[in-house]
Design a binder for these strands. Structure first.
Length: 429
RNA sequence: GCCCCGAUAGUGUAGCGGCCUAUCAUACGAGCCUGUCGAGCUCGUGACACGGGUCCAAAUCCCGUUCGGGGCGCCA
C-alpha cells in the first residue's frame, strides 16, 4: 500500500487505485451518498462515499471536520466533480478524530484575529497560505545555502549561550546556567570573526539570535533567524557582492519552485539586476534635505525618513558609508574619510534587511574603538585574543530570514513569517 | 519606555444610555432536500473581559485592572 499525495492524483489513470492520507476539510452529506473534501499538504480532493461501497458509512460521514483519515479508492476523471477529478472511496479509516467546534476559523471564509491564530498555531498552519509561507521560506533559505556552498562557504554553528553582555547596543536575555548567570547571544558576530582567525576563510551560519528589546512593532521579533556570513581577505565591497548574489540565488530558487504562487502574492517582486543600487549615507541626507526633511549626520534614519528614501529606490538597494557613531565598535572606518565606515545596510524600499561591514582586524584599533564606544576591553579578552596572533582582514553581514521572507511576500507583520513568534509578550505556544 | 486604539456566542462582527430577555454571518446540534462542490432550506444552541462608579435606567458614559492591536522610541 503506497501513499499517493493529492497533488499526484492528476498523473494517475482513470480507475487507478490510490491510498490517500489527510484531514477532513468538509463533509457534505446527501441522502444517497456523501462527499468529503480531503486535504493533505499538497492540496485537496473530493472523495465520494457511497454506503454500498464502504463499511461504516454512518460513522465515517458523521466524523468531525479536521479529523484524520486514510482513504483507499479509485481515481475518477469522468465524475462531474467540478475539479475534474474525484476519488470513489472503497475503504475509509478514521485514524484520529478532531474535537468540535474548532477554536478558530480556518476554512469558513472568516478571518480570525492573529491573536487567535497564534494561540492555535498548529491548526492555523493547516490553512494553505499560512503553510505556503513556510515552504517558500524554506526554498529561499535553500537557494541561499546553495549559493554559499557553491562559493566555498563553510556552514558553522556558534554558541548561543554566552558569558557576558558584550557588544553594547541591544539588550541580552539573562538565563541561569547552573550556578551562574549567562546570556543568550544576540548575534554570532564575535564568534564568526574569531573563526577568521582560525583560518576558516569563509563561513556562514543560520541560527537563532535573541534580542531583549522591548519593541512592539510589526518588524521586530525577540527571537529571529539570522543568516550570517564572514569572509577573510576582503572588504565590504566583496561581501556586498556575495549578499546581492545570494539574495538573488534565494529568489531564483523560490521562483523556480513557487513562481506561480509568489507572483500572485506579490506581483511586484522580481529578480533584480545586479549590482543593486548603492547610495551613501551622506547622499541620503542630501536627498532628505532636498525634500525639506532635516536629518542630522550621525543619527540613524527614522522610519519616516526611510520611507522617503525608499521612494527613490524601489526594490533592493544598499545604503553605504554609515557614520561610525551609529555602527558597532568592530566596524572599519573608511581610511580616507574616517567619519564614516566601510559599512552598508541592504534595504528593500523602506525596510531594512541587513547590516554588514568590513571589520577592524588590527587589535590595537579594535581596543581603541571599544573604549570610544564606552565598552571595557577587559570584557572582550576572549575576543581580542583571537586578534593577537594574525587576524586576516575580513568583512561580513547578517540578514534576518524572517524579514527577507516578509518582504518577498509583502506581508504586513513579521510574526506571519515566524512559526511560533516570540515578541514582547508572547512565549507560548 | 511613551502615545493612540480596542475587548460582544467556538470564530468573525452589528449595536455605542431605555426600542437589547443583544444583530448578522459562520460554527455546533436536530431535521428536510439535493451528485454536492462557498451547497440550499427550517428549527435550535451559544456572548456584552474583570472590578468599581454615574444614572430612574449601562453592552453603551466615567475610573481602575487585565489582556490585545498599532505607531514611535529603543534595536548590528
Amino acid at each position: 500500500m503506497q501513499r499517493t499525495y493529492i497533488s499526484g492524483i492528476s498523473e494517475r489513470k482513470d480507475g487507478d487505485e490510490v491510498t490517500l492520507f489527510g484531514w477532513v476539510q468538509e463533509i457534505r452529506k446527501l441522502k444517497k451518498l456523501s462527499f468529503i473534501v480531503l486535504r493533505d499538504h499538497t492540496g485537496t480532493v473530493q472523495i465520494t462515499i457511497k454506503p454500498e461501497n464502504v463499511s461504516g458509512y454512518d460513522q465515517i460521514t458523521s466524523v468531525n471536520r479536521e479529523s484524520v483519515v486514510s482513504v483507499r479508492g479509485n481515481v475518477s476523471f469522468n465524475s462531474g466533480a467540478k475539479a475534474g477529478v474525484e476519488i470513489t472511496a472503497r475503504d475509509v479509516k478514521i485514524l484520529n478524530t478532531s474535537e468540535a467546534p474548532l477554536p478558530l476559523a480556518i476554512f469558513e471564509g472568516i478571518q480570525s484575529d492573529f491573536e487567535t491564530r497564534l494561540n492555535n498555531r498548529s491548526l492555523d498552519l493547516r490553512e494553505p497560505f499560512h503553510n505556503l509561507i513556510f515552504r517558500i521560506e524554506s526554498s529561499l533559505l535553500w537557494g541561499i545555502r546553495k549559493y554559499m556552498h557553491e562559493h566555498d562557504f563553510q556552514e558553522v554553528h556558534t554558541p548561543k549561550i554566552v558569558a557576558s553582555a558584550t557588544e553594547g547596543g541591544a539588550n541580552l536575555f539573562q538565563v541561569r546556567y547552573f550556578e551562574r548567570e549567562v546570556f543568550l547571544n544576540q548575534s554570532p558576530q564575535l564568534y564568526k570573526e574569531m573563526l577568521m582567525a582560525s583560518g576558516m576563510d569563509r563561513v556562514f551560519e543560520v541560527g537563532p539570535a535573541f534580542r531583549a528589546e522591548e519593541h512592539n512593532t510589526v518588524r521586530h521579533l525577540n527571537e529571529f533567524t539570522s543568516i550570517d556570513i564572514e569572509m577573510s581577505f576582503c572588504d565590504h565591497n566583496e561581501v556586498m557582492k556575495v549578499l546581492e548574489e545570494s539574495v538573488n540565488s534565494g529568489l531564483k530558487e523560490v521562483f523556480e519552485r513557487y513562481g506561480e504562487e509568489v507572483r500572485k502574492i506579490n506581483p511586484a517582486l522580481e529578480i533584480q539586476k545586479l549590482p543593486f543600487p548603492r547610495v551613501t549615507y551622506r547622499e541620503c541626507i542630501r536627498l532628505l534635505s532636498d525634500e525639506g526633511v532635516e536629518a542630522k549626520f550621525g543619527d540613524d534614519f527614522s522610519p519616516e525618513q526611510l520611507r522617503l528614501i525608499g521612494r527613490h529606490f524601489p526594490g533592493f538597494y544598499f545604503i553605504t558609508e554609515w557614520p561610525s557613531e551609529v555602527r558597532a565598535f568592530y566596524t572599519m572606518p573608511k581610511p580616507e574619510d574616517p567619519e564614516v565606515t566601510n559599512s552598508f545596510d541592504l534595504q528593500y524600499g523602506e525596510r531594512e534587511l541587513t547590516s554588514g561591514a568590513q571589520r577592524v582586524h588590527d587589535p590595537k584599533m579594535l581596543e581603541k574603538r571599544l573604549v570610544e564606544k564606552g565598552l571595557n576591553p577587559e570584557d572582550f579578552n576572549f575576543h581580542l585574543n583571537a586578534f593577537r596572533y594574525g587576524m586576516p582582514p575580513h568583512a561580513g553581514w547578517a540578514i534576518g530570514l524572517e524579514r527577507l521572507t516578509m518582504i518577498l511576500l509583502n506581508l504586513p507583520n513579521i510574526r506571519e513569517v515566524s512559526l511560533f513568534p516570540r515578541d514582547r509578550t508572547r512565549v507560548v505556544p
